[in-house]
Simulated scan of single mutants.
Amino acid sequence: MASASYKSAIFFSFVLLFILSISMAESRAVSSGIGTNSALICSKIYGANIGDTCFSIMQQFSMTPEAFTTFNPNLNCDKMFVGEWICLDGSSI
């Protein structure tokens, strides 16, 4: 019959193996994204005012919908608020 210390050593080994497996999987997921998405540096920013909509901002600054969504990928046009920063122009690094 196995001793208690032997059983705890096996249990600890399984726990360590599990943690290392998760750690390696997460590092692969993070490293696979490197280089695929470049960071955006905004060179022109606008603060939303009362009554602004995504469409009105696109019209006001002569932006295409494609450019607007490229510069503002996480903007929710249905929940835009006064003072929200809208990127109007920029470049990727």
Rank of each mutant, 00 (worst) to 15 (best):
residue 44 K to Q: 14
residue 47 G to H: 15
residue 25 A to I: 01
residue 11 F to M: 09
residue 87 C to S: 01
residue 62 S to D: 11
residue 49 N to Q: 15
residue 45 I to A: 10
residue 27 S to R: 11
residue 16 L to P: 02
residue 17 L to E: 00
residue 11 F to Y: 14
residue 17 L to V: 03
residue 54 C to K: 02
residue 17 L to C: 14
residue 54 C to H: 01
residue 65 P to Q: 11
residue 74 N to P: 00
residue 46 Y to A: 09
residue 41 I to W: 06
residue 47 G to Y: 13
residue 92 S to E: 06
residue 67 A to L: 14
residue 90 G to F: 09
residue 10 I to H: 10
residue 91 S to F: 04
residue 93 I to A: 05
residue 21 S to N: 15
residue 2 A to G: 02
residue 28 R to P: 00
residue 24 M to S: 08
residue 50 I to N: 02
residue 86 I to C: 07
residue 53 T to W: 06
residue 76 N to A: 07
residue 51 G to M: 02
residue 78 D to N: 13
residue 17 L to G: 07
residue 53 T to N: 02
residue 35 G to E: 10
residue 91 S to E: 04
residue 36 T to V: 11
residue 17 L to D: 02
residue 81 F to K: 14
residue 70 T to C: 06
residue 6 Y to M: 05
residue 16 L to H: 01
residue 4 A to K: 09
residue 67 A to T: 11
residue 25 A to R: 03
residue 12 F to C: 04
residue 65 P to N: 10
residue 2 A to L: 05
residue 29 A to Y: 13
residue 91 S to A: 00
residue 18 F to Y: 09
residue 74 N to F: 13
residue 87 C to P: 02
residue 49 N to I: 10
residue 8 S to E: 12
residue 10 I to A: 06
residue 83 G to C: 03
residue 19 I to Q: 07
residue 45 I to F: 09
residue 58 M to W: 03
residue 86 I to P: 05
residue 2 A to E: 11
residue 93 I to M: 06
residue 77 C to Y: 04
residue 54 C to M: 03
residue 60 Q to S: 12
residue 75 L to M: 14
residue 61 F to N: 01
residue 64 T to G: 13
residue 70 T to A: 15
residue 85 W to F: 13
residue 17 L to A: 15
residue 46 Y to H: 04
residue 12 F to H: 03
residue 42 C to H: 04
residue 40 L to Y: 07
residue 6 Y to K: 13
residue 64 T to D: 08
residue 69 T to R: 15
residue 28 R to I: 04
residue 4 A to C: 05
residue 67 A to S: 13
residue 93 I to N: 09
residue 24 M to K: 10
residue 15 V to C: 07
residue 48 A to H: 07
residue 36 T to E: 05
residue 37 N to I: 03
residue 73 P to Q: 06
residue 57 I to S: 11
residue 55 F to G: 00
residue 35 G to H: 07
residue 1 M to A: 10
residue 32 S to I: 05
residue 79 K to W: 11
residue 25 A to W: 01
residue 34 I to V: 13
residue 14 F to G: 12
residue 32 S to M: 01
residue 93 I to L: 06
